[in-house]
């Protein structure tokens, strides 16, 4: 293997790693705040790319229908909850908050699709469609289970993953898509050629991570989310609603997933179920970070990216075997190095 190949593989690893970093950060965030192991994270990735691809073809993306259906279910659940707890007065306000944004987004998409907007606008639209799916998934599947054990939440997460994959197939079909790159440029540095899309991935990932770092350390809402992750009971006592925190976190997760989808859409062909494996690679990173440490998780995510690109060169068929088997030594290392504590449920 010559240095040229190494550079190319390293570049691939870095690109994929940057995506996995985004995903692993979202997974840790969701786990910390809601204790949900977000197995369906990957579906947001698929949905992002597939939504964008539909719009490219001038079709109404299936995710818009999903958005409306989920909003309808959430509205029914809210109505039931409010009426049975005797808080019917709040019903109009809550229903408006649940239904108006999804309907407005659907209308906006309907208007925009025939206009064949520039790629940037379509990406924004895709994010606008997929992001509210996060809070809706939280509302419908997880919020009623807020007091359940991690185990029950995990089973619910897997069930949600099944539903979203099935719906992905229903709405988008089994065809794979490749979305257009943000940039066709090929930059040459000496012997190294870097694609414009890779640069977009690095830059977006960097900007987004910086934004998250700023949000969590500098804004009170960000601190409030961290507070919920550290001490749920204490957070309630200062008036931070765990449901609000869950809603916001799931919105972040969906947005990050969608963004990842549109970023790698031009690099690999994505199918309705491809997101799952991509999301799980984010998990490998998150596990390196013990589902708690962001910097360690980021390091883990890059490791996964590099491992993947280099193993695809040597042992292409065994790429996924290697990436997922690495979790065993990682867990061994964690179990030997971390302080064990009993989880009393």
């Amino acid at each position: 293997m010559d240095s040229q190949t190494i550079l190319i593989l390293a570049q691939d690893g870095l690109t994929n790693g940057a995506i996995y970093v985004l995903l692993s950060v979202a997974l840790i965030l969701v786990f910390g705040v809601t204790r949900v192991v977000l197995i369906p994270q990957g579906e947001f990735v698929s949905y992002g790319a597939l939504t964008l691809a539909s719009m490219q073809l001038g079709a109404m993306p299936g995710t818009v229908w999903l958005l409306l259906i989920m909003a309808g279910i959430a509205a029914i659940m809210e109505t039931y909850r409010l009426l049975s707890s005797g808080a019917g007065r709040e019903l109009p306000r809550v229903l408006a908050m649940t239904l108006v944004p999804p309907v407005a987004i659907a209308a906006l998409v309907k208007i925009c699709i025939p206009m064949h907007l520039a790629l940037g606008w379509q990406v924004l639209l895709a994010i606008l469609i997929v992001t509210p799916l996060g809070p809706l998934v939280y509302r419908v599947a997880f919020r009623p289970l807020a007091d359940a054990s991690v185990l029950v939440l995990l089973i619910a997460a897997v069930a949600t993953h099944f539903v979203l994959v099935g719906l992905g197939l229903l709405f988008f079909g089994a065809e794979g898509v490749r979305t257009p790159p943000f940039s066709d440029a090929q930059l040459t540095f000496g012997t190294l050629t870097v694609s414009g899309q890779s640069l977009w991935v690095y830059a977006t990932s960097f900007v987004f991570i910086s934004f998250l770092a700023w949000f969590f350390s500098r804004t009170l809402y960000g601190k409030a989310l961290r507070a919920v992750a550290f001490n749920r009971n204490g957070a309630r006592l200062v008036g931070i609603s765990p449901h609000l925190a869950g809603t916001v976190t799931f919105a972040f997760a969906a947005a990050i997933g969608c963004l990842s989808g549109v970023l790698i859409g031009p690099i690999t062909t994505l199918y309705y179920d491809s997101g799952f494996l991509i999301g799980l690679k984010g998990f490998v990173g998150a596990i390196v970070g013990g589902m708690a440490s962001y910097p360690l998780a980021a390091a883990g995510a890059f490791m996964v990216g590099f491992l993947e690109s280099f193993s695809s060169f040597w042992l292409s068929g065994y790429k996924d075997v290697i990436v997922f088997t690495i979790i065993i030594p990682i867990l061994l290392w964690r179990s030997l190095s971390s302080i064990h504590y009993e989880e009393e449920e």
Binding site: G234, A235, L237
Partner: peptide, 15 residues
């Protein structure tokens, strides 16, 4: 008490 042990005194107060 239910403080946020891994956050600063000032962050605790702000929250």
């Amino acid at each position: 008490r239910e403080l946020f042990a891994q956050m600063s005194v000032e962050d605790n107060l702000e929250l």
